[in-house]
Amino acid sequence: MKRILTYSEAILEATRQEMERDPSVIVYGLGVNDPRGIYGTTRALHEQFGNARVFDTPISEDAMTGVGIGAALTGLRPIHVHIRMDFLLLAMNQIVNIAAKSHYMYGGAVSVPIVVRSIIGRSWGQGAQHSQGLHALFMHIPGLRVVAPTTPYDAKGCLIASIRDNNPVLFVEHRMVHNLKGHVPEEAYVVPLGQARILAQGDHITIIGISHMAVECMRAQHELAKVGVSAEVIDPVCLSPLDMQSIFRSVERTKRLLIVDSGWLSCGASAEILASVAESVEDLGQIKLKRMGYAPVPCPTTPSLERLFYPNAQTIAQAAYNLVKNEDWAPEDVTAQEVIEFRGPF
């Protein structure tokens, strides 16, 4: 029988195994040693590894990011955890001006092996400042790797790869995938950063889902199959570097591309993927293209509007069907259990 873990458990296991393997790995961030342990992803690590290697911090994202970078420059492998991605805006100077630049700017004299974990929030009124998917800001910057795994298997393998990487890695998790379950091997393993994962094979359309949207795309794929549309669903897993070859191969075959992001469209991950496709595929004029993502506003709190802010399986299936058949159709409402089941306040 396959061993099943949640995404959160996979993150915790990856962290624990790397801390056991390598004494230079440390974990810090607001709340990492509290009883909730960042949705269980850091739970009780301080009891096993001690307060010197696992510690809470003052609410000082700018300095604490710099502290992690300084520690990384001098031999440690820090994992800095942010319970919301929105808080990274307070750390941009250190991430962009120091972490991303140091190896290149100093001619290779030093490296910055830091992992910055952050979680995109959603639901229960998270609102404008607790729900942002800001991965595209970091994709823009040379010198950063940006990883956003969707499945528990990739979460563990990518986190281990990120910790062992000698460069700064932005590790993006979505709150809505933390409780998803899947097969996770017990032993430590690496999922190489920069390889997309084909979640479902299909012939009529290529659908790319980023982070939690990959889950919604799989639901849409299921509905589309019932009406004879065969969708290929690709999870990029790693956003920088992007595995464009896997996307090119699929799109050249299906001639239709729908990109669904856990973020806004403008200058976003979807824009980057679309631009690369436009530059690289043959017969561009034969390919139908569409993007979906956050509505172009800050996220509202009331459920009646928040529901409209995000793409969902129904709207994704509807858009895909239209690209393939050039006709209107939508499945019955396809509920996302993880969104419905989520109870705040956190």
Binding site: D62, A63, M64, T65, G66, V67, G68, I69, G70, A71, A72, L73, T74, G75, L76, Q94, I98
Partner: peptide, 9 residues
């Protein structure tokens, strides 16, 4: 803060 991080190391 980088110097503080080095002190932590």
């Amino acid at each position: 803060p980088l110097a503080v991080g080095a002190a932590l190391s």
